[in-house]
Design a protein around this nucleic acid. Sequence first.
DNA 1: ATAGGGTCTCCCCTAACTGGAAAGTCAAAT
DNA 2: ATTTGACTTTCCAGTTAGGGGAGACCCTAT
Lengths: 129, 129
Amino acid sequence: MQIGEAAKAADLPVKTVRYYADIGLVTPVRSASGYRQYGPAELAKLIFARRARAFGFSIEEVRELLSLYEDRNRSSADVKEIAQRRLEEIERRMAELTALRAELTHLVDTCRGDHRPDCPILSRLAPEA
Amino acid sequence: MQIGEAAKAADLPVKTVRYYADIGLVTPVRSASGYRQYGPAELAKLIFARRARAFGFSIEEVRELLSLYEDRNRSSADVKEIAQRRLEEIERRMAELTALRAELTHLVDTCRGDHRPDCPILSRLAPEA
DNA sequence: ATAGGGTCTCCCCTAACTGGAAAGTCAAAT
DNA sequence: ATTTGACTTTCCAGTTAGGGGAGACCCTAT
C-alpha cells in the first residue's frame, strides 16, 4: 500500500511516516516511480512505533525496541531494561512537577487576584525579595 | 557591568543572556565598542527570568510576567491568570505521566526480564496483540 | 608590542516533527 | 487525447530554548 493508506491504518500523519522513513526507523520499498510501498511488516512497525511513542519512548528507544521486537532471539531482560530507564525518567519528571505544583498552588492561592498590584507570585520571582 | 559579570550575578550562562538580548526579553544598552552593558534594572530582570523559567514558564510567559513586573499599575489578577494557566498545564502533564507510570510499572513488573524472548512489554506494543 | 581574557556576530546543531512550495504520478472523466 | 484532481515526491523553513565553535574585535597588563 501507499503512504496515505499506511498512515491511515497506523493512525499516524503522513508527514510522520515519511519522517520515519527518512531516519531509517521504518523503511518501505519504493515503486518504479519512487512511491513508498508499505507491506504488513512495515505497517506493524508503524503501529508499534506509534504506541511506543505514546508511552514516551524517544525515537532512539523506539529504534532499540523495534530491533528487539524483530529479534527472535532477544531476551526479555533487554526490553525490561529500556522500559525501566523510561520509568525512572517518568518518576524524576513527576517529582519535579510535584514540587513545582506545590509551590505554584500555594502562590496562586495566596494571590488575591484583584485590581491591586501587590502579588506574592511576582514577589517570589523578583530579586529584591 | 558587562555580560560576563551580569551572567554570573544572575546565575545564567552567557549564551542565555545573549539570547535573551537577541529576542528582546532583557535588552541592555551598548557601549561605544558594542559591548552589552547591564545595569541593576537589567540584572533584576535576568534574575526574574531565571526564576520564572525554573517555574516552568515559557519565554513568552516570562515576557508577559516581566511586563507586569514593570507595570506599577498592574492588577494581581493578570499575574494570577498566567500562573493558573501554568498550573493547569502542570496538572495535565502530571495526569498523563501518572497514567503512563501506572501502565509501565505494571508491564515492567510482569516482565520476567530473563534470557527468554517472551515479554509483555513488547506484546503490549505489537499490533497483533 | 604582545599576550591574555573577554566580547562580538554568524552559523550550525539539538527532537520530533509540521507546514508549505514546486514538480512528478496515476486513474478517471471529458 | 487531454485535462482534472488526488496523491505523492523532494526540498526548505520553522518550531523551543538555547549550546558549541569559528574568526574577528576590544581592552588591559606586562
